[in-house]
């Protein structure tokens, strides 16, 4: 099984993300505010934008009503740099507006301060 060290843990602050190479694939390594790491294919499922040029942010929730926004899940949502589609890092990279679509993901583990991506 293929695996590769993609960066050091302190290369990515909680709430941040970074592109890295995993073999021939460009992956997006994300770190949520609780310190956990996740990795996805660094390419939007819509038209292929490079997701590392977007941002990690929170989400307005479906508890919101017109006139009353609820915003939470800070650091857990990837937002595409082009058309703004939102992908849920902690829910298998599923798209908020259409959870049937998700970003292809990779497994990640941390060993000795190193972030390892594997299939």
């Amino acid at each position: 099984m293929k695996e590769q060290v993609v960066c050091k843990t302190n290369d990515i602050e909680p709430g941040d993300m970074k592109a890295a190479n995993f073999g021939k694939q460009n992956v997006l390594v994300c770190r949520t505010l609780d310190g956990e790491f996740y990795a996805f294919l660094n390419q939007c499922t819509h038209q292929g934008a490079p997701l590392d040029k977007g941002m990690i942010c929170g989400a307005t929730t479906d508890d919101s009503q017109p006139g009353d926004y609820h915003y939470c899940r800070k650091g857990e949502i990837i937002r595409c740099p082009w058309h703004g589609r939102e992908f849920d890092i902690k829910n298998e990279g599923r798209m908020l507006a259409n959870p049937d679509k998700r970003l292809p993901s990779y497994k990640v583990r941390v060993e000795n301060e190193e972030v390892i991506v594997y299939k």
Partner: peptide, 11 residues
Amino acid sequence: QPTVAGVNRAD
């Protein structure tokens, strides 16, 4: 504009 970088592609 409710997108990542306003009117523009962020990249």
